[in-house]
């Protein structure tokens, strides 16, 4: 009798697994592709805010060189005070920019979270844990001298494992449906947002700001050197070292901008490809999509390294 009950339970569980697995709109590979796509993408989307921050820091440093080239104490005081006030205002600009790009990052992080293994593994782990705990409770109950027959143990743990497996399959189907709906419905918005971000990064305004910092750094340092020469003062060695460091940083700005644009384009294309495949009901991830995702992750790693320098 007990054997029949166990068999029925196992057959029912296998049927449930079979039905839920066949209902899943996405394959594991597709969900993994979404997870990989969003792994590092938040690095790219925060680039406009970081560019603002880097330009602000460069502006302050070159401004200090320039202030040192002024001949009167009064003029130098006014310039340094203005630099300090502008630096504080720039911090507010950077904070606002970070807040705005956080909306992009929220989407990327949320998509990464919904496609993560933890969404379906967690439930299975808990169910297995419950089965084991119930078995422990029964074991401890049997150890008490209650006078009643012992309750059979081991079945709760077995049931927990089987139910956990079924629950994991069900959750994977739920996850697949959720990821599919999000990617397909959100693709238009994502494409529009990526286009907007790319337009901002490639805009004439951003271009001019970057060019202005690069050229003004040279001009301001030249003025500083000319002023020291006029006063007959030697140039501190550390000034040259700082100038070289600042030159390196300004030269990196266009590279950061261009890498971010490439990465955003890659992200947009990969997202659109996934959405098209999901909408068409395809279950396989084509090789070129994996290559696109890999290219995106490499670009994102490069951007991350440049932004942290």
């Amino acid at each position: 009798m007990r054997f029949v009950t166990i068999c029925n339970f196992l057959i029912f569980s296998l049927l449930a697994v079979f039905v839920t697995a066949s209902c899943s709109p996405l394959s594991k590979a597709q969900i993994e592709a979404v997870n990989e796509l969003t792994f590092r993408s938040d690095t790219i989307t925060r680039s406009p805010a970081v560019l603002f921050e880097k330009m602000s820091a460069l502006r302050l440093e070159r401004g200090l060189f320039y202030a040192a080239s002024l001949s009167s104490g009064r003029a130098r005081y006014e310039e340094v005070t203005a630099l300090a006030e502008t630096s504080m205002d720039d911090e507010s600009v950077v904070r606002k920019a970070s807040g705005y790009v956080d909306a992009f990052n929220s989407y990327v992080r949320a998509l990464h979270s919904v496609s993560a293994d933890a969404r379906w593994k967690g439930l299975g782990t808990e169910i297995r844990g419950v089965g084991t705990r119930v078995d422990s409770v029964l074991y401890r109950y049997n150890r008490l001298d209650t006078g009643y027959d012992d309750i059979p143990t081991g079945y709760a743990r077995m049931a927990g494992r089987v139910l956990a497996y079924v629950a994991e399959e069900v959750m994977q189907a739920v996850q697949g449906r959720a990821v599919r709906n999000i990617v397909v419905v959100g693709d238009t918005l994502v494409a529009a947002s990526c286009d907007s971000l790319m337009d901002i990064l490639r805009s004439d305004e951003m271009d001019e700001l970057i060019r202005h910092e690069r050229e003004s750094l040279r001009d301001n340092y030249a003025a500083y050197l000319a002023a020291l020469e006029l006063r007959g003062e030697p140039v501190p060695f550390e000034s040259d070292r700082l100038y070289v460091e600042l030159l390196r940083r300004t030269d990196e700005l266009p590279d950061i901008r261009n890498s971010c644009v490439s990465a955003l384009r890659s992200f947009k294309n990969a997202h659109a490809r996934l959405a098209a495949d999901f909408a068409a009901g395809k279950k396989e991830v084509p090789e070129e999509l994996w290559e696109e995702v890999l290219r995106l992750n490499v670009l994102a790693a490069q951007v991350s390294e440049m932004l942290e320098n």
Binding site: P48, V101, I182, S193
Partner: peptide, 28 residues
């Protein structure tokens, strides 16, 4: 002024994704 122009564009670009991100977090 140039930075403010860029910030305005950034703000306009980010708004549509806020609601979508909130919906995803609710699902999670």
């Amino acid at each position: 002024a140039t930075s403010e122009t860029l910030l305005d564009r950034l703000e306009a670009a980010s708004k549509p994704l806020e609601d979508l991100a909130r919906d995803i977090r609710t699902r999670v």
